[in-house]
Amino acid sequence: MRLKRQLSQEEIADLIGMTQSTYSRKEKGVTNITMQEWIKIAKVLAVEKDEIYQASISKKDIFKVFENLNIPPEFLEKINFLQKENFELQEKLRILQK
């Protein structure tokens, strides 16, 4: 939704009262977004919170699910790498579109 609204991480971070680096970690799922932050983000994006809200699931919990499916660890590592690469490419694309 942030990208759809053509807002940079820095712009939205300023609008909700945090640093860009903190917002980036939250957007990537490295740290959790609090309910109060979800509300602020929704207000900035002019949407209902439920439209953007995603329950926090730790990477540890995600890996437990995959472990139960007997997915080889090298596949999980590749998935993690591709997720990071995808995020970085989305950011580069956003910058190029500006």
Rank of each mutant, 00 (worst) to 15 (best):
S56A: 10
E91T: 06
N86R: 08
I79G: 11
N32Q: 15
I12M: 07
K78M: 12
D50R: 08
W38K: 09
M1I: 11
K43V: 05
W38V: 03
Q90H: 07
R5Y: 13
S24K: 08
K64G: 07
L76T: 02
P72R: 13
T19Y: 02
T19L: 03
F66S: 02
K59I: 04
K28E: 00
K28S: 14
I52Y: 02
I39V: 12
L96F: 04
M35N: 09
S24Y: 02
Q9L: 05
E27R: 04
Q36W: 00
T31R: 08
K98G: 15
L3S: 09
T34E: 05
F81M: 11
I71D: 02
D14M: 14
L69W: 13
F87N: 01
P73M: 00
I39K: 14
N32I: 12
V30A: 11
Q20C: 07
E48S: 15
F81K: 15
L89D: 01
Y53L: 15
Q90K: 03
A42D: 08
L7C: 07
V30N: 09
Q90E: 01
P72Y: 04
R25F: 11
Q83D: 08
V47G: 03
N80D: 11
L96M: 06
S56E: 05
K28P: 15
P73K: 08
L7T: 03
I39T: 05
I52M: 04
V65D: 03
K43N: 12
Q6M: 09
T19W: 01
E77M: 02
I62R: 13
F75V: 07
Q97H: 08
K4F: 14
V65G: 10
K59E: 03
E27W: 00
R2P: 07
L89Y: 03
K92W: 01
D61C: 01
L93H: 04
S21F: 04
M1R: 15
Q90G: 00
I79E: 00
K28V: 09
E85Q: 15
F75R: 13
N80A: 13
V30F: 11
E67F: 02
A55Y: 11
I52C: 02
K4D: 13
K40W: 10
R2F: 04
L7F: 03
L45N: 07
S58Y: 00
A13F: 09
Q20D: 11
M18V: 15
D61I: 00
K98D: 10
K43T: 12
K43A: 12
Q6E: 07
V44I: 04
F87Y: 05
T22E: 03
T22P: 00
Q6K: 13
S24H: 06
E48W: 14
Q6R: 14
T22Y: 12
L89Q: 10
K78G: 11
T34I: 05
K40L: 03
I33P: 01
L3Q: 06
E27L: 05
K40H: 13
E88D: 09
K98R: 14
N32F: 04
T34C: 09
